[in-house]
Every structure is written in C-alpha cells, then in structure tokens.
Design a protein around this nucleic acid. Structure first.
Lengths: 340, 340
DNA sequence: GCCTCCAGGTAAAACGTTTAAACAGATTAT
DNA sequence: ATAATCTGTTTAAACGTTTTACCTGGAGGC
C-alpha cells in the first residue's frame, strides 16, 4: 500500500504538506497543491485509517448492540441506523447478544442478561468505537444501571433511565390512535386482548385505550379486557372468553399481531365474519399481518425511523457533546387493511 | 486511558518487557512477570487495539456486506456469522446496501447494483478489515467479476464464480428431499408452482423434483408445472389453473411460502380440504408458515449454519492462506407441520 | 584466568498519520 | 536600514504498540 511518505517524495515535499493538502488544514500555493494531487492520483494513494485514528483518537465507528438481530423490528432499526451512520461517514460495528425472543420472558434469567449486556458494552468500548447505540427491545433489562461509561450511549426503541438519551415510540399514543380509528369506523364495543399484565407496554397501551374511549364518552368495562402472553395461542384462548359476552364486542384490539391472528382464527371458527360482524386490529405490523385472511389492520412501529434518528442523535452527541440527554418520540402509523 | 508506558514505569521495567508478558513472546523471570501483572491490574490497563493493529497490520475485523439486513434469511445468516466471528475473537463491521427485495427483480437496474456492490466492497476494504463476507441473496448479481481484491472474500448463501470460496445450500437436493417426503406420505400426483422461469433456483429445484420423481418411477407432466413470480398473488393465480386439471393433483409444492400461502387460500376457497384432499408444501420457512391455517410444511434453509460456516471459512483463510477456494454445501431440512 | 554461552532484560525503530513550532524568504512598516 | 509581518513549507514529536538486535552479568568449560 502506498503511504503518505511515498506521495511526499514523489511530489518533492514533506509529509506535512501532503497532510495539509488532504485535510485543507493550511493554505498552500496552488502549484504545490497541484503537484501533490497529481502524485496522490498517480500512485492511487489512500490514507491509512488506522494511523489516522490512532493519532486523532477517534475511529468514526459506532458500536450497535442488539439483543438479537433476527426478527423484523430489530433488523429494521439496524437498517435505519446503518444507513444514517453510513451517510454521516461512520462505520457500523454490530454486536449481537443472541438472546432469543423466547428467553426474554423468563424473569429468573435476568441476572444472566445483565451480565451479557454489560459484557457486550465493554467489548464494544474496547473496540475503540466513538459511541454505542443500544437497540433495547425490552425495558425490563434497563431497570438497573450499567457500569459507568465514558463512551456516548443512545438507546433505540426502548428508553433507558430518564438521564439517558433515547429515541422511542409512544405505546400510549399509538394505542389511542388505533382506538380512535376504530371509533371512526363506527365501532363502539371495543374489546382488548392485552399482553402480559405486568409489562410496561401493556400498561401504557391500556392507558391510551382508556384515554381515547373516555374522550369519546365511552368506557372500557372490565370484562372487555383479556390478558394474554403475546403468543398466538393466547390470542385464541382469550377470544373464546370474549365470545361468551353478551352483547358481543364489535371490535377486538389485540396488542400484537400474533394474538390478533389467533383471535381471527377463533372468531372465524365460531362462524363470525371479519370485519362484517366484528373487526380485528393488531399491533406491530409483522409480516404475517399482510398475509392473513382477511389481511390485518395494525399499528406499524416506526422502526426504521427510530434507527435513523438514533444514529443522528449519536453523530450529534459526538460532534458537540452536551450534558443534556435528548429524548425523542416518533409517532406510529396505522396500516389499513381488510380486517376493520 | 492507561498506556503500556504507565504499566512499565509502575513495574519498573521497559515497555518491551510489558509487551512480552502480555503476549508471552519471551521467557521472563517469574518475579518480573508477577510485578508487571500486578501493575496491569492496579491501573486497570487495557491494550490499545488501534496501536496494535497499526503495528501488526491486522484489525481482527471482518466486513459483512449484505444487500438488505431486513428480511429473515439475511438477518439469520448475519446472526450466525456474527456469533462465530465473535467466538473467534473477531469484530463484525456491517455494511448494508439497502437494496429492497422488491427491486431485486428489476433486471434493468443491474448496472446500479453492480456499482453499489462494488462501492460497498471498496468501502469495506478501506476500513481495514481483514476479510469480507458477502451475503449474496441473488446469483444474478454475481455474473460479473468484481474489481480485483487483495482482501480475502467468502460468499454466503449464493455462490460466486467457481474460483471463489463460498458456502451455500443445494436447491436441487432440498427440492428432491421434499418430493421424497411427499411421496413417503402417499402423494403421487405432485404439482409444482415454480418461481420465475428463468431464475437459477427455479431451474435447479425443478431438476431436483424431476430427479426424485424419476427415481420413484413417476413423471412430472408439463401441465403440472406452473410458473409464478414468487409473490402471494401468483400462488393463487397458478392454483386456479391447477384446479382445472382432471384428475386433480394430490399435492402442490410451491417454491416459496408466499406462493404456498396464496395457493392454500385458493384451494380452501374452492372447498378443498388441506391436507385431506390435497397437500401443500412450501419453501423458505418464513414466519408466516407457522401461522397459516393449517400450518405449512416447508423446506427450511440452513441460514444460521451458512453464516456460521462462512465465518469459520473466513477465519481459516486468514490464519492459513491458501490458493484453493473451498466450497461448502449445507443440507436443508424439512419442517413438518399440518399441511401435508 | 579467559572464553563461551545463556538467561533476562532493554533501546530504539517501525507502523502511518497529524500538528505545534520553527524556519526561510519576501514584503511591508517605521 | 532595521524591524515586524506574512506566506509557504518543513521539522520533529506524538499517538501506543511490537520486535529485532543489542546489552549485561553471571555460570560453566577449559
């Protein structure tokens, strides 16, 4: 590989001069500049990033810590991050914790997660990254403090503590939006299949649902709320319970697409027509939503945008460090399909 | 940050000695070793990777080039790569080309792809990676040669030219396996909904299907082969044609899960029972396969394994360079569900 | 007593940049 | 005429490692 010294001797100048024409860090005579440029292109010189980084103390590299890259939301967020970083002249180092979704729900393993997340964080810091973006899918992991870090950190998707910089979406507002959408379509008796009763998203979304109903002068009776466990089967089971009600709800809002799918199967099994007799709405906009019969109207998370925004925040933090954490909330959208 | 010099003065030795105890590159007296180790842990010294890389000329970093990280197969492959690299002490630099799947099929844009892929390759090389793994989902992009590269390159998923190192799966064998599976379940009149007629996977899988049938003494009549375009709709359309046949097939093998889903919807719409009247098999094992009614029996690609293996090949190539390309083919598996 | 050898350790160059400080020469100010 | 200023360029140190070649003092062989 050609080095700066090679360019220098070819152009008959010092390496300092070469460096200055490359970085425009000092005014030089047009002739010298031209001579150096010629030399550079003649031997096809490319600066050595390693040496530059060593000298400058920054690598233009951002570490991205994910719990598991498989699964659409995570990869879409990473896609957004990666694109924005790339445009900003940064490289992306990916560190995957390989925590399968299935394991997320096992509370007892929390200690293990804490350790693995911290290990990942440390490993990334040791890799000389200029900053770390943590794509956290579950708030639960964030209850505790990490080892103190000297590297800038931003959270994407979930939020960390109040003193962290993060970009996320609003569980409350997006759920409220969907309820308003259902109301706008003439639905009045809206039942809910919620997620795990003690989880943060469940609580927040429930809040949003109640808010929207209240604003419309409606209530959410206790028996219209059923709790599932985010899986397909629980969607079906809870729907069985809803079917015992009289009068029947005219809409079911499931807190994820999997449970919505289970719900739809059960409803159709009972001879009801969707959306004729009863509407179904989901949350997440997973791939499956598009291919159900009928296709599922659902809340789409702004995954890519969250990634993009997180990357921009990061770049911002690096170029002008500030003690103030910035919190950004990106609105969700509703994907209208055939189930409402 | 503590430097090696700090350790040296604290232990009362030279930096050379410190380096030697860290790397075990020279025999030293137990006392000195101990003193240095103490000093290291006292000031919590961590070697500076940048300086090390600059000196040694390798970064322990592998560039992973993907066409689009969104989408399950790609992210699963990256997951495998990342895990194996991590275990081997390598870091993963992700470079995402952001080529949406939808665009893949537009032949006229090939020139653009070529350029973007080469840009990515160059950018990664400029990032001082020790090697590059290209996760190529479409053979079509690989018909041409890349700019000559000095960096080790391995292909994952698709294969490059014959002189490249790659790890992939067998379209032919996996399709044959599925046919044998169907035969084993007593199906005899197996129809096929193929992908785009001129695509490599379509041709190979068709070959495998014919092979397996032939071995069983059966033929694949021309009217049992319908060509779709990999999308849901085309699955439904081609099924309409199949329904006109007499006798009806007793199984349909669609070359991806999306077309299989379209097929199933159409069959059920026609009042047929799956798998009672007719079996349906897919290919890809996308998420949707698990949630269809009935759930879809399909061919699962060894995505994670491909990633793992590609990473191992890479590490191998780096530690002992050899002129011989290595080609590895990983078998697919059949996921048995309710549709057969 | 001299030479050789060895074990344990160090000096210093090298990797390829950036940049503060110095320098030479020309121009301008006093 | 001398000093001050400016312009364009260079010198050399610095970033934090690794590693070759050298050094020193002592043990062993003769």
């Amino acid at each position: 590989m050609a080095t700066m010294r090679d360019v220098a001797v070819l152009a008959g100048v010092s390496t300092a001069t070469v460096s200055h024409v490359i970085n425009g860090s000092k005014k030089l005579s047009p002739e010298t500049t031209e001579r150096v440029l010629q030399a550079i292109s003649r031997i096809n010189y490319k600066p050595n990033t390693l040496a530059k980084s060593l000298r400058l103390g920054q690598t233009h590299t951002i570490g991205v810590l994910v719990e598991d890259i498989r699964g659409l939301p995570v990869s879409a967020i990473v896609s957004g991050i990666s694109e924005a970083l790339s445009k900003g002249g940064y490289k992306t180092i990916l560190y995957d914790l390989h925590l399968l979704e299935k394991l997320y729900n096992q509370y007892e393993k929390i200690g293990t997660y804490r350790r693995r997340i911290n290990d990942g964080l440390n490993l990334l810091q040791a890799s000389d990254v200029d900053g770390i973006i943590y794509v956290a899918m579950h708030d639960r992991h964030l209850d505790y403090l990490f080892d103190p870090m000297d590297t800038p950190l931003v959270f994407a998707y979930s939020h960390g503590t109040e003193s962290d910089t993060y970009v996320t979406y609003s569980n409350r507002d997006s759920a409220a939006d969907m309820v308003r959408y259902l109301l706008g379509r003439g639905r009045r008796r809206i039942a809910v299949i919620a997620g795990h009763p003690h989880s943060y998203p469940t609580a927040q979304r429930l809040l949003g649902i109640q808010m929207a109903l209240q604003q419309a002068g409606l209530a959410l009776p206790q028996e219209y709320i059923r709790y599932g466990d985010w899986e397909y089967e629980s969607g079906a089971e809870q729907t069985k319970e809803l079917l015992k009600l009289n009068p029947l709800p005219d809409a079911v809002f499931a807190m994820n697409d999997l449970m919505a799918a289970g719900c739809m199967a059960e409803l159709m099994g009972a001879g009801l027509r969707i959306p004729g007799d009863i509407a179904v709405a989901g949350f997440d906009n997973r791939e499956i939503a598009a291919y159900l019969q009928p296709s599922l109207t659902t809340v789409a998370l702004p995954t890519t945008e969250i990634g993009t925004e997180a990357a921009l925040r990061m770049i911002d933090m690096i170029s002008n460090p500030s003690p103030h954490p910035v919190r950004k909330i990106i609105p969700c959208s509703i994907v209208e399909r055939k189930s409402v």
